[in-house]
């Protein structure tokens, strides 16, 4: 087992969270959320990796002739990407409306909902 991919996943998630917490621009914040999500891609793919494994496509290799990586996590990652695309698109649309209605995309200036 290689530790590096897991460390990369943790690093990506925490970097994204740091960016979200300190963001001064909502478009940047939505981007940071996408960074957090890429941590899940890295983690899922790292979980499914086998040493010396190849892509689980059996058109040119005989089943059982050599190790392949886990196809389940790849299916999960694909689903995850689709989910992420939807979320990012919707959130960016909301940011666009915030820019129109509030005239700013700086979260520090959006202080109507409080207390």
């Amino acid at each position: 087992m290689h530790v590096l991919p897991y460390l990369v996943a943790v690093h990506l998630f925490l970097t994204g969270c740091y960016g979200l917490a300190t963001s001064r621009n909502l478009i940047h914040a939505v981007g940071c959320l996408a960074v957090c999500q890429s941590a899940t891609y890295v983690l899922l793919l790292a979980v499914g990796y086998r040493d010396g494994g190849t892509a689980p496509v059996f058109s040119d290799i005989r089943p059982g002739s050599r190790p392949v990586v886990d196809p389940v996590v790849q299916a999960l990652t694909l689903t995850d990407i689709v989910v992420g695309a939807t979320v990012t698109a919707l959130l960016l649309a909301l940011v666009l409306q915030i820019a129109k209605r509030h005239g700013t995309v700086d979260p520090d200036e959006l202080r109507e909902l409080r207390g």
């Binding site: 941590a39 899940t40 899922l44 409306q97 909902l113």
Partner: peptide, 24 residues
């Protein structure tokens, strides 16, 4: 739109934490 964006960012972040737990 402001409330919806806050809702979206916090809940999506929670969902990604959930997914990392599932992966583990």
């Amino acid at each position: 739109v402001q409330g919806a964006l806050t809702f979206g960012i916090v809940n999506s972040l929670g969902a990604y934490a959930l997914l990392m737990g599932i992966a583990l």
